[in-house]
Design a protein around this nucleic acid. Structure first.
Lengths: 155, 155
DNA sequence: CCTTGACCTCAAGTTCACTTGAACTTGAAG
DNA sequence: CTTCAAGTTCAAGTGAACTTGAGGTCAAGG
């Protein structure tokens, strides 16, 4: 006589790949919702799995939980997300990924130019020169844009 | 009558771009060295600027302080680094960057294929599917390799 | 001599995304 | 009825890379 329409914490944990503690944490943070059973236990709707998949994908793209919360808020809460919803968001994500890739490529190219120019001691090298270093160069970190600022974990 | 051969904390801070607190922290962590003046104040050799530039470049490449400490240990302590030293290391760094870029590109391509295939709800999408999600797919996160595991900040 | 500002040490705080632990309750099986 | 895994809450811990604060010292100018 088990209910097919709700899931327990352990089921959601197993099927989403998130630890139970993470599920509680996400609920705390307002990223997911859970109902309560008589005895006070969490009961999840199946849709939470889709939501968790979304959360994982987004965090793989490098979004913070705060940003993910915002994107989830944009998402229709009552209806199932449409193709349009999903495409809008994945275009956004693609943009983020492209930025991160481009930033890393600039960094790599900067490194290449350092190798090429033979600036051994890094003293005048823009690659690692934020302020002065040699006391003469004013330039700054030409190859170090801001897109890389966000940490990024992929479990 | 100022000594041209040693630098104070504030000079090193200004010229390296690191906060004085960061310099003390790095000294604590064994990344840099400082002598002491009569009154117990730090006095840095000019070479510390090169070392700090190295540290910044390395951390921009995504190395942890622990890894940077190891690389610094490999570096000749008594003599000035040669072109060979620098090239060995920058090849290593280039490799790291290439890995990170490749990983992000795989992620992006996975996202593209998701958009293409129209798997709206992410339910069967390998891009965000670590364990099960639909209760039927066994696969796993095909597009999520390990090279992205390390956070990465660029000040 | 006094003030000011740069410097010192050591402990504790910060942010992010969670995990761990302590202490307790629930519910199903035996 | 007992037992025990699975669940609950709330507080505190983790790790990376630093920063901030408290409380005190040193050096130079006036």
């Amino acid at each position: 006589m088990d209910r097919h329409d709700v899931l327990s914490v352990s089921e959601v944990a197993r099927r989403s790949g998130y630890a139970a503690s993470a599920l509680r944490f996400y609920e705390d943070q307002g990223l997911i919702e859970a109902g309560r059973s008589a005895g006070g236990r969490r009961s999840y709707e199946r849709s939470v799995l889709r939501r968790l998949a979304f959360i994982r994908a987004a965090s793989n793209v490098g979004l913070t939980l705060a940003e993910i919360r915002e994107e989830l808020a944009q998402l229709p809460s009552n209806r199932t997300p449409t193709k349009a919803d999903w495409q809008r968001i994945s275009r956004h994500w693609r943009g983020r990924l492209d930025e991160r890739i481009a930033a890393l490529e600039r960094l790599r190219d900067g490194l290449d130019s350092c190798i090429g120019c033979g600036c051994l001691s890094l003293q005048r090298c823009a690659f690692s020169n934020p302020a002065d270093i040699a006391g003469t160069v004013a330039a700054g970190a030409a190859y170090l844009p801001g897109e890389l600022r966000r940490p990024h974990r992929v479990r």
